[in-house]
Computed example of a mutant assay.
Amino acid sequence: MYLELVSDRRQRRRRRILLTWLAAAGTCGYLLPWAVATTRGKAGADVLGLANLVLGWTVVGWLVVFVLACRRHGIAGLRVTGLG
């Protein structure tokens, strides 16, 4: 029996990643934090995308969302494996 850390990382979908990068390129980098969060599989990528859309017009808002998109994945819990 052993414990395994489980992160909040989501499975990445190619179509969604392509869409976010096309949106980032089409907006000249305005939606770049959303594309980075989606590519990295962040659990809150949709929330970060919305925050980027609403607050991204301020330089500080854009930087905050970008930093949040680049942060490492959090720990969601522990998984016990190998029982029995």
Score class of each variant (00 low, 15 high):
A76Q: 01
R10G: 08
D46T: 13
M1W: 14
L32P: 00
R16A: 10
V60W: 10
H73C: 03
L31A: 10
A45M: 14
L18Q: 12
A43D: 13
G61A: 03
R13E: 03
L19Q: 12
G41D: 08
C28W: 15
L83V: 13
C70L: 14
P33Y: 06
Y30N: 05
L19D: 07
V80I: 13
W62N: 04
L31V: 01
G74Y: 07
R79K: 00
H73N: 07
L78K: 06
C28Q: 13
A23V: 09
G61C: 03
G77E: 05
G49N: 08
G29Q: 02
R12S: 11
A35C: 02
W62R: 00
G49Q: 01
F66E: 01
V59N: 07
L22Q: 12
A23M: 02
T58P: 06
V47P: 01
V64S: 02
W62S: 01
L5N: 03
G61Y: 10
L48S: 05
L63P: 01
T39R: 04
A45T: 06
L50S: 10
R10Q: 11
C28L: 14
L19W: 09
L3E: 02
V80F: 06
A43W: 12
I17G: 04
V54D: 00
Y2K: 15
L3A: 11
L48D: 00
R71I: 07
A35I: 04
C70E: 10
V80L: 14
A37V: 01
L83I: 11
V60N: 08
T38K: 04
L83R: 15
L5F: 04
R72T: 11
L22T: 14
T27L: 08
T81Y: 00
V6L: 04
A43N: 13
T81K: 14
L18D: 07
Y30S: 04
T58I: 08
V65G: 04
G82W: 08
A76T: 01
W34T: 07
L5S: 02
L48A: 06
V47S: 13
I17A: 07
S7Y: 06
A35T: 06
L50K: 14
V36Q: 05
D8V: 03
R71L: 09
R9I: 07
R16S: 11
R9Y: 02
R40N: 03
G56H: 02
T38C: 05
V65A: 02
V6I: 10
L48F: 03
G61E: 03
L68F: 14
V60A: 13
T38Y: 09
E4D: 05
R40I: 00
T20A: 14
T20F: 07
D46A: 15
D8M: 04
R79C: 00
L63W: 09
E4M: 11
V60R: 12
A24T: 06
V59A: 03
R12T: 10
L22P: 00
C70I: 11
A69M: 08
T39C: 00
C28D: 14
R16D: 12
V59F: 00
L32F: 03
L78T: 13
G84T: 12
Y30V: 01
W57M: 07
L18M: 15
V65F: 02
G74N: 11
H73F: 06
R15Q: 13
L78M: 13
A69K: 02
R15I: 10
T58M: 07
W57S: 07
T20C: 09
G26T: 05
A37W: 03
L63E: 10
V47E: 07
L22N: 05
P33C: 01
G74I: 09
